[in-house]
Amino acid sequence: MFVSLFCALRRVAGDVKKWRPAGADRGFTFLHYNLTIAYHRTNLLARYGSWSANSNGGKLEALGYKEGYRVDVDIPEGTWEKAPGFHDILIFNTGHWWWAPSKFDPIKSPMLFFERGLPLIPPIPPDVGFDKQIRFVEKTMQPSAIKLFRTQSPRHFEGGDWDQGGSCQRLQPLSPKEVEELFSLTKNGTNVEARLVNLHLYKSLKGSNFHILDITRMSEFRADAHPSTTGGKKHDDCMHWCLPGITDTWNDLFVTHLNSLKIRN
């Protein structure tokens, strides 16, 4: 989405300064318009790192935990902690890592949540930790900032997951029936993750002052829009998107959303 936005703006503004504002991974200022856009990479929004049991014991050790990942729900990851004080408009996206057994195995390497430097006892599940993280993010924002949360980007693996020979060789968008075959929660197939995460996301954002940028449904149809075998990987890339492509439409939706907020205000 960020690359698509940069390309669109670059077509109408030639004088661009490349830099990394507020600790961003990438950033550009379009000098004529005094407009800066930046991309801050973060997995959980919260600061996290590996955790191992202390030989002197502790509350988690007493419960039998030996290792896992410490997640501080009230400390932002350093990559974006300065962003709220710099940007007027922020688009957040997280969720994929929160419910990823390959990253945080609930048995072998669970997420262990901390607040104010102390472990939360009894240990809380990821959905409760996610709720706490959303509440904390809200508190860090400037009152005048426009805050959006982008829903999950769907994958289109067929015949297995990315490491099981899954592929995405379609040349046309899916029909509504085909979409449900791939993404229906009742079938619990390879690609249901986006809808599952969105269920948690909508629940956590209820009552917040975030505006939701829903890109999931429209993207579910575009099984034809991934790099597939041209992605330069050993397996089909059915997760990222080609440019030009669907992410351009995400930005069209984003601009429309901004205009609607401007009219309302």
Rank of each mutant, 00 (worst) to 15 (best):
L35N: 03
F28A: 05
G49V: 11
A223P: 00
P122Q: 07
D127R: 12
S52I: 14
S50H: 13
K233L: 15
F86Y: 15
N188H: 04
R26L: 13
D127P: 13
P110Y: 02
W80Y: 02
P106I: 04
H257A: 14
F104E: 02
F92N: 05
G129K: 09
S184E: 12
R26D: 12
W162G: 05
L182Q: 08
S52C: 11
T36H: 04
L63K: 00
L171T: 15
V255E: 07
E178M: 06
Y33V: 13
T247F: 06
W51N: 09
D248Q: 06
L174K: 12
V3Y: 03
P143W: 04
K203D: 15
A83W: 02
E220I: 00
R135I: 09
W19A: 10
A53K: 07
I121E: 11
L253P: 05
G68M: 03
G165C: 08
I75K: 06
L205K: 06
A53D: 09
A223N: 01
W99L: 11
W51Q: 08
E67T: 12
M218F: 13
T186R: 02
Q142D: 08
G232S: 05
D25Q: 11
V128I: 15
V128E: 15
K82L: 12
G23C: 04
P227I: 01
